[in-house]
Design a protein around this nucleic acid. Structure first.
Length: 419
RNA sequence: GCGGGGAUGGCCCAGGUGGUAAGGCGACAGCCUGCUAAGCUGUUGGCGCUACGCGCCGCGUGGGUUCAAAUCCCACUCCCCGCGCCA
């Protein structure tokens, strides 16, 4: 949620941001119009309420005909107020509805662009391993090594599901253990959160109403399957007031993630790269407003560390205006090099949401000078397990069809090779 | 699922026979003292406006009764404690 005060005082800032996102500006004009009407109506009501209160107070000390008269008059005023209050309520609802649909204001450093192609590469790390053979993609490698069963998953659950098997299972647990090793050193509190949350948690983190079609819902209950641990980690401190002393707060949550992948028809239909259910470790930070931009850079560095440790080449892109989620004011993606596909593919998404989620979730802190303000929130993938398995298989494949285990994982895996 | 208890400002907690939120703690500011502590004073929910002021709203949520509701009535939500069931 952006601050209504910002819309009142500097609507041009919001307008520019909407333009940059290639979104309709009409919503902004409507918010302004409705807000003006709301304020006028509220002022009217306040005056009427004042009259009523004065009369009601006087009645206590009146008697007889005077009292009767006053009661009658007050009743009239009350009826008038009730009518106006209905108008006010409707305006308020309309304003909230609209305001909840205005995306976050972009930071100035976000590059303008219309598609992924306009993302700006800001860094490249590592070099692809030399291969004196034609690299295979993860599907071929994995099927040959019996690491997953996609056909039976399709039979049981449908397209975009998988059974992970054999060493792939060990690899997953090794990755998880590896990640939490690093995360604890970096001061993140390990968490396993609920993967079913109320709608309010999804709304608060900005996945509703913007990502409605991507969410699985539980029938007849106010519960949804989360698409990322960002939801329960962000909502964890909703309606709380933290102390500036405990900021920044860092959490790392392991969770299964569920996504309908609506609108992704035809994209990455094979394998385990884009699926309805996968496991992921997500980092989440709550911090002081003045520190969120530097914390964002730090968070990116932490995310990079996982791939550096695995010795997987990657690049970092600054995601362009059109591709940013509603909550994010700025976002970096890490894309790992996938030799089998001959391209860089997204494995990490690292966002700064400023106070956008904090406003929706009512997460505040008491500052050193005693003021209560909204915190800033940031989130980033640490390890998206299945995608990282894809990257490992493609980068560590060998001529004979086997795949090496990255050195950093060997202690957790108990073996050096998958064959 | 059944029974009982509870929800009030940053936190704790009063009010409960309807008349318009008391007190404590903490925090912040000021005063006082050579410094610290103590002490004293003030501030410390949200919103609107023709803004050193005026007013409105606010006691879990939504309705109702009333001139007037934290207080009475109805429904709901969440939390806690027992019991039952259960991985």
């Amino acid at each position: 949620m952006i601050d209504i005060e910002l819309i009142r005082k500097a609507p041009e800032v919001v307008r520019e941001s909407l333009k940059k996102r290639n979104m309709e500006e009409r919503i902004l004009d409507e918010v302004i119009a409705v807000d003006n009407e709301w304020r006028r109506t509220l002022t009217d009501i306040n005056l009427m309420r004042k009259d009523r209160n004065e009369l009601a107070r006087a009645i206590a000390s009146l008697a007889g005909e005077e009292r009767e008269k006053a009661i009658l008059h007050t009743r009239e005023i009350s009826n008038g107020i009730a009518r106006k209050e209905e108008e006010l309520k409707a305006l308020e609802e309309r304003r909230s509805y609209l305001l909840a649909r205005v995306p976050n204001v972009l930071l100035p450093s976000v590059p303008y662009g219309r598609s992924d192609d306009d993302n700006v590469e800001v860094k490249r790390w590592g070099t692809a391993r030399a291969m004196d053979f034609e690299p295979k993609d993860h599907v071929d490698i994995g099927l040959a090594l019996d690491l997953f069963d996609l056909e039976r998953a399709a039979k049981v659950s449908g397209a975009r599901f998988f059974y992970l098997k054999n060493d792939a299972v060990l690899l997953e647990f090794a990755l998880v253990r590896y990640a939490f090793d690093i995360l604890q050193r970096e001061g993140f509190v390990p968490i396993i959160p609920p993967v079913l949350t109320r709608e309010s948690a999804l709304f608060g983190t900005g996945f509703l109403p913007f990502g409605e079609e991507n969410i699985y819902r539980i029938k007849d209950e106010d519960l949804c399957l989360v698409g990322t641990a960002e939801v329960p980690l962000g909502a964890m401190h909703s309606n709380e007031i933290l102390s500036y002393k405990e900021l920044p707060k860092r959490y790392a949550g392991f969770s299964t993630c569920f996504r309908t992948e609506a609108g992704a028809h035809g994209k990455d239909t094979k394998g385990i790269f884009r699926v309805h259910q996968f496991d992921k470790i997500e980092m989440f930070k709550y911090c002081l407003p003045e520190e969120s931009e530097s914390e964002h850079e730090k968070l990116l560095q932490t995310a990079e560390r996982f791939y550096q440790g695995l010795e997987i080449p990657y690049r970092v892109v600054s995601v362009c205006s059109n591709e940013l989620g509603a909550s994010a004011a700025k976002k970096y993606d890490i894309e790992a090099f996938m030799p089998g596909q001959g391209m860089y593919r997204e494995v990490v998404s690292c966002s700064n949401c400023l106070d956008y989620q904090a406003r929706r979730l009512m997460i505040r802190y008491r500052s050193k000078d005693g003021e209560i303000r909204y915190v800033h929130t940031l989130n980033s993938t640490a390890i998206a397990v299945e995608r990282t398995i894809v990257a490992i298989l493609e980068n560590y494949q060998q001529k004979d069809g086997s795949a090496l285990v990255p050195e950093a994982l060997q202690p957790f895996m108990g073996k050096e090779m998958i064959k």
